[in-house]
Simulated assay, not measured.
Amino acid sequence: MALVDYATSAGVALLTLNDPPVNGYTHEMMKDLDAAILEARFDNDVHVIVITGHGEKFFCAGANINMLRESDPTFKYYFCLHANETLSRLEHTPKLCIAALNGHTVGGGLEIAMACDLRIARKGAGKVGLPEVALGVLPGTGGTQRLARLIGKSRAIQLMCEGQTFDFETALAVGLINDVWETASHDEFMDRILAYSHTFTLPDRAALAVGRIKRAVQTGFEVGLEQGLALERELQAELFTSEDAREGLAAYMEKRKPVFQGK
């Protein structure tokens, strides 16, 4: 049985971490997530990737502790390496990725969410944090690096060394997540997430441009300004040759709504 459910709808791929009750990830789940990311990457009809957790209580509680306790150091190393590669693959895919935080998002679960471009949480559904210090280890699936880049070095060190978990409103205030939505139910939250995701798809939004905005920021942020500007110019030159750019410019001049095709 797959540990990551995969479904598509009108340009959006929905990836659901599915290992109740806490959706903790094993190497098997990470391999399924890796495969799902690649499937969405190669699908020309997919423009947005949404990642969420099964059920109403957990997005993901992080790595499966029993798996880590029973495995040897060599397995642990390669497990972390593959998890890093998987999340980097998600981050480098030039399609917008949204983490729908439907419940508690802690440890490696938050590390998965931080590899997404946007993080939107359901109000009151759970807490977030990187409490690995309580286990005598550090957040080893990109947590130390991505958290510092999102909220700054000093605050990141504080949160990880204290091992705090905190509510979504606090996460919003420190810049860790993008928005908190109040909804009557989990189903309403997911319906709203998918509706929001569809605003980034064809024909109303230039999905090629969205993907390259993501790529320019995700890659350019990690290099010097001059290299980032060079990447930006190359991506812009690529977009200028697209039919969507011609359509966008023509629609602006003709004072009409553009119809994008992803070409």
Rank of each mutant, 00 (worst) to 15 (best):
Y196V: 01
Q236K: 14
E162M: 09
L172G: 03
E222R: 14
V217C: 02
R212M: 13
H198Y: 07
S185M: 07
N178L: 02
A216Q: 11
F200Y: 14
E222P: 04
Q236Y: 14
L249T: 08
T219K: 11
Q261I: 06
V210H: 03
R215K: 13
Y196L: 12
R212G: 02
A207W: 02
A173C: 04
R215W: 06
L172V: 09
S197W: 00
V210N: 06
E222K: 14
E182H: 11
F240V: 03
V174F: 04
K214R: 09
Q218Y: 09
T170V: 12
T201S: 09
E232D: 11
A184P: 05
N178W: 04
E238S: 14
Y196T: 05
L172C: 05
L194R: 03
L202H: 04
Q236F: 13
T183D: 13
M160G: 04
R233I: 08
H198P: 02
A251E: 04
E188I: 11
D179I: 04
H198D: 03
F166L: 02
L176W: 01
K257Q: 14
L194T: 07
V217W: 03
I213H: 12
F260N: 00
R256K: 10
L229M: 13
E182Y: 12
V174M: 07
N178G: 04
V259M: 05
R215D: 14
A250V: 02
T170F: 09
T170L: 07
G175V: 05
G175I: 04
T199S: 13
E234A: 15
C161Q: 15
Q236E: 15
L225V: 11
R192L: 12
A206C: 15
G224R: 03
